[in-house]
Amino acid sequence: MTTTVVELWTEEPLVRYVGQASARLVVIMTPAGQVLAQHGFAKAVDLMGIAALGAAIMASSGALADLVGEATFGALFHAGVRHGIHLAPCRTPRGPLVVLTVFGRETSIGLVEFFFDEFAAALHAAAPAEQARGPVLAENFEAELGSSLAALFGR
């Protein structure tokens, strides 16, 4: 099973959580659905779809909470025949995050919830403050973008 991280500070807490909770798939994402770290996915584009749906569920749940006068509904849990999912918010110095955990029969929602609390605390402790960022792309990136898109559209 692969673990990939966009921001290194997420790696150690993620690896520990996956082991403790016996999770099959875990995605750490921003509320906008951008993936910060993941465990268990082989194909990045599938991961993006799952992150988009997870973030959407969390966002609509938050909007519903607001409508009925609740600050938040906290974690969500869905049980299936072979898999369960646990979806929960997590506050860090880098801003709010959303964590989606997919687990099977080798563990339970109780264990996932128990270790998620430790995981959320570990993420909060590990997250550095926001940093300024310099230029990422070269100034002449547009030629490469043009040829990449042309190839994508078979032109």
Binding site: T30, A32, E130, R133, P135, F141, L145
Partner: peptide, 14 residues
């Protein structure tokens, strides 16, 4: 969108 990444910017994230 990518032009913004060729310029200096803050590292803020939503």
């Amino acid at each position: 969108v990518l032009r913004r990444l060729s310029q200096t910017s803050s590292g803020g994230r939503d």
